[in-house]
Design a protein around this nucleic acid. Structure first.
Length: 423
RNA sequence: GGAGAGAUGCCAGAGUGGUUGAAUGGGGCGGUCUCGAAAACCGUUGAGCGGGCAACCGUUCCGAGGGUUCGAAUCCCUCUCUCUCCGCCA
């Protein structure tokens, strides 16, 4: 949610930001409602002030044994008028609220203006495309032939675009999760969390998945719960409604969670194998920080995620997303993409974003810099550290040996019962 | 799923219709005292919205949302959450 004072004072800037993000919201409608709201408040506050004043007089007079009948009668009318205005105000505020929920965050000034992925800026590469002396086999074939993943069983159990990991494949999933959590907790100073995988509507609003992306979520209608699309939702909402002690910042959380996405409208070969599945595993990184440090914290967050890829020896690149590619709530975002040798393309495995105070406003997360000072909104950041299935894609395709076997990346060997090869 | 109890400020905990944003205790912050600290004592300590250059003024908020009333933390209704017992269950 944007600061309403910003919309009021710099509407043109907000309109430009909305356009740069390729969103459509009627800012002028907001401004009109905002003015109407302030008019009503001015009137109703005066009426309430009168009512409060006279009600005190009534109390006094009654205590002295008088019967202030005419004052009570007059206030009855004032109260009726207050109610009328309050009803109108409630109506206007509901409209404002629903409009406000659809206004995206403004892009940071360092974000390149652009329409689509061609306008993203490549920041850096790490490693080289692996030189594979044979025709690399796509991961879905390796996974099946080594018995690591059973796609057909998964579709019997659930449906298309689900994965069932089996044997060493399941072990590889668990190994990666443990490896990543160990790194982030031991080396990068994150506190490990094991959150609920279902979240209520308020939480989904707080982080900005709702209302815009409701169609992308799995929804339990009976209880109005949503399956979380990312641990960002539970992690950010840990502090919904809190005023944090400034001394406790920055707060860094990491969590493994399954992630559920309907991926409505995604078809074809982009979705083959593990490229895009409805349920996947991810280790998430999340920070609550003071505004002054949030952009430095974003850089270090990206670094924390990159270190996972480096340790796994996977060739990757870092992209700075352009305005048109930026998600609804983000002010700035870096994507990490790993190289898939057999598919000869880049796969997104992490998005690291600074939301500034956008989520904090929606979710009411503030901090008090020092005792006695006014509470301010924190800045929130999160990023994948990293998402599993595509990492497995890259591992399978990068570490295939050409004779049907798979080398286990060195850092994972201890997590695989010492096995350095899967065959 | 059934029965009951509860939800008040940073924490604990009073308060059943009239200057109650809220007693009291603890904590925090400031001060006195002290070389310093502790103790003691004194003071102070919520947020949102609207208006104002500001000092400040008004208004709202005692789980959430409605209602009754001249007036609601206090009465009524709905919902959410927590706890206890029963049932069910990995």
């Amino acid at each position: 949610m944007l600061d309403q004072k910003l919309i009021r004072s710099e509407p043109e800037r907000v309109k430009a930001g909305v356009a740069a993000k390729r969103e459509k919201v009627d800012i002028d409608a907001y401004l009109a409602l905002d003015e109407e709201r302030r008019n009503i408040i001015a009137q109703v506050d005066n009426l309430k002030a009168e009512r409060n004043r006279v009600s005190r007089e009534i109390a006094d007079e009654k205590r002295q044994g008088a019967d202030p009948e005419d004052k009570i009668k007059a206030m009855r009318e004032v109260s009726a008028e207050v109610k009328e205005h309050d009803d109108k105000l409630r109506d206007v505020e509901a409209k404002i609220e629903s409009l406000l929920m659809w206004i995206p965050n403004m892009p940071h000034s360092s974000v390149p203006v652009g329409r689509n992925e061609d306008d993203n800026k490549i920041i850096r590469h790490w490693g080289e495309k692996p030189s594979i002396a044979f025709e690399p086999v796509p991961h879905w074939d390796i996974a099946e032939s080594l018995g690591l993943v059973d796609f057909s069983r998964a579709s019997v159990i659930a449906g298309s675009n689900f994965a069932l990991f089996k044997g060493k494949g399941a072990r590889l999933v668990r190994a990666l999760i443990s490896f990543m959590l160990d790194m982030h907790t031991r080396k990068h100073g994150y506190t490990e969390i094991w959150p609920p995988s279902l979240a209520n509507r308020d939480s989904m609003m707080g982080t900005g998945q709702l209302p815009k992306l409701e169609e992308d979520m799995y929804h339990c209608q009976v209880d109005d719960y949503f399956l979380v699309p990312t641990a960002e939702v539970p992690l950010t909402n840990i502090h919904r409604g809190d005023i944090l002690d400034g001394k406790s910042l920055p707060i860094r959380y990491t969590a493994y969670s399954p992630c559920f996405r309907r991926e409505a409208g995604s078809y074809g070969k982009e979705t083959r194998g593990l490229n895009r599945v409805h349920q996947f595993d991810k280790v998430e990184l999340m920070k609550f920080v003071v505004p002054e440090s949030s952009y430095d914290e974003l850089e270090s967050l990206v670094g924390d995620a990159e270190e996972v890829l480096q340790a796994l020896g996977l060739h990757y690149r870092v992209l700075l997303l352009c305005t048109g590619e930026l998600s609804f709530a983000a002010a700035k975002c870096y994507d990490l993409e790993v190289w898939s040798p057999a598919q000869a393309k880049w796969l997104e495995v992490s998005s690291c974003s600074n939301f500034e105070d956008f989520q904090a406003r929606r979710a009411g997360i503030r901090y008090r810099p020092a005792a006695g000072e006014k509470a301010r909104f924190v800045h929130t950041l999160n990023g994948s550290g990293v998402a599993l299935p595509r990492i497995i894609v890259a591992i399978l395709e990068t570490y295939q040996t050409g004779d049907g076997r798979l080398k286990v990346p060195d850092v994972l060997v201890p997590f695989m019962d010492g096995a350095d090869v899967i065959e």
